[in-house]
């Protein structure tokens, strides 16, 4: 009996030892559930949200396009895959009238795509600002991906917001950014600078020093030459336009 128990014990130990030698399956990514989100790795105001104004464009510009980078979680496939983006409730923008979305695909064999948001210059924008919030939603190809906030982004990685207008408005970053260069804001000043510098991207800061220095020098010279011919430039508030 004692010998039998010893035999059983030894056999069991040997069996477990043999079973323990089994090779583990490799830990591989499960690609059965692909997801997509806005690519905000280099998030600034441009990729996180856009305040777009046609007011700085010439009259013949009636559409403009902003591109939204998107990136998938999962492996590339050999066919194009669609992305679904919906307008959130509460938005005042109307799809197909104020804007439309194109190129909502992740191309075959790619991990990234670029969605085009095409804005339309409508008459009503002259005296109003409309807003839109775009959200990535699930479809047959993708579920919504990361819903956290990328570094320096205000919105999560499934959301992108825009405002659209044709009304001349003080850019939201004027006081924090442009005022250091060009002084106090006025509509007259920004229209003058837009034409002089051939620059329209007033809602975005972060210029490199050589570019901001050049723009400032051009602006100073421009207002000087204007005044030589026309005298002081007076803004809509009755103040002289000064570039410090």
């Amino acid at each position: 009996m004692k010998r039998l128990l010893s035999f059983i014990g030894a056999s069991t130990a040997l069996l477990f030892s043999i079973l323990g030698c089994k090779e583990d399956d490799k830990l591989m990514f499960d690609d059965s559930d692909p997801k997509v989100s806005f690519d905000k790795r280099y998030a600034g105001t441009l990729v996180d949200s856009v305040n777009y104004s046609f007011a700085f464009q010439s009259k013949d510009i009636i559409t403009d396009t902003v591109q939204l980078p998107v990136r998938i979680i999962g492996l590339p496939r050999n066919t194009d895959r669609n992305i679904a983006i919906a307008l959130s409730a509460g938005s005042t923008a109307k799809e197909g009238y104020h804007y439309k979305l194109e190129n909502m695909v992740i191309p075959a064999n790619a991990s990234d795509g670029t969605v085009d948001v095409i804005f339309f210059r409508r008459a009503g924008l002259k005296d109003s600002v409309i807003t839109g919030e775009l959200k990535i939603i699930a479809n047959a190809d993708f579920k919504p991906g990361y819903d956290d906030n990328a570094v320096s982004a205000v919105l999560d990685r499934l959301t992108w917001r825009f405002t659209l207008t044709d009304k001349l408005e003080k850019p939201s970053i004027w006081d924090s950014y442009w005022k250091n260069l060009f002084g106090d804001y006025s509509n007259t000043k920004i229209l003058f600078l837009t034409e002089l510098l051939n620059y329209t991207n007033w809602n975005q800061g972060g210029l490199f020093p050589q570019d901001s220095n050049r723009m400032l020098a051009q602006a100073r010279l421009g207002i000087y030459e204007y005044e030589k011919i026309h005298g002081p430039m007076i803004d809509e508030n009755g103040n002289r336009v000064i570039i410090p």
């Binding site: 490199f208 020093p209 050589q210 570019d211 220095n213 050049r214 020098a217 051009q218 100073r220 010279l221 000087y224």
Partner: peptide, 19 residues
């Protein structure tokens, strides 16, 4: 016409007439 260089990216060239 100044040309400001430094450790920041982008092309640097001589700018506009200085005041």
């Amino acid at each position: 016409y100044p040309n400001m260089v430094g450790g920041f990216p982008g092309a640097k060239k001589f700018g506009a007439e200085m005041k």
